[in-house]
Design a protein around this nucleic acid. Sequence first.
DNA 1: AAATAAGTACGAGAATTTTCGTACTCGAAA
DNA 2: TTTCGAGTACGAAAATTCTCGTACTTATTT
Lengths: 119, 119
Amino acid sequence: MLVAMTTQIDQVPSLEERLEQPEPRDMRADVVFAALSDPLRISIVQRLMSEGDDAFRSCTWVGIDRPKSTLTHHFRVLREAGIIEQRRYGTERRSRVRMDDLAARFPGLLEMVLAAPLG
Amino acid sequence: MLVAMTTQIDQVPSLEERLEQPEPRDMRADVVFAALSDPLRISIVQRLMSEGDDAFRSCTWVGIDRPKSTLTHHFRVLREAGIIEQRRYGTERRSRVRMDDLAARFPGLLEMVLAAPLG
DNA sequence: AAATAAGTACGAGAATTTTCGTACTCGAAA
DNA sequence: TTTCGAGTACGAAAATTCTCGTACTTATTT
């Protein structure tokens, strides 16, 4: 149970479900800064980290009252910058902050986001 | 010589020459991120830090080939975010990165800017 | 006092980003 | 298989940012 069935040889099933995201070495500081320059997106990242764990959460779980297409946009900006990771769970798209990658690639960044006084 | 003459009691003459900038506690992470999301502005900050010291440098010293009004815009964005400090020296406006303030307020940020591979 | 040099103020066009409605896809449930 | 739920794709309007020309200000130099 809980084993994803994929159509190709695949030692790591979850890879199939993972949406495209940059490798840590390909993350660009200016792109990361741009992604975090929007207060709404900072809130999203803060919410995703608010439970202390690194579980995947649906974008409705984040509880931001905006149209679905607006949320899709912001989550995509965050993912393409390398800040969050997204996976498909059935009909849902769940996300989590790439805490380990970010802490290693940009020390201090997450602390800066967590300390931001916004929502 | 080199003593600024001001029109009011002024124990610290340089304060007169200093352009308005936020106190460290008033710096906002989202505003700082926005200021650093532009590659041109990251280059400016890198250039200002490139000599290892914290001397004030004119915006032409930075050596970026753009119209003066464009440079004025970018330097203002950086100053209002709290990233640089600007002072008047005669007809010049010289700037320097607020390294101490930034290192204390946002640990890791300057390292992130310095490591950015842009110009 | 006139010329020069450095930079600002203002305004406008170009480019980018944000927002959101509508239609669509895809998987799960009835 | 029909419906429902979560989210995406697309497109367009609104807002913001970037760029830069022109005119202006200010301080130094001649």
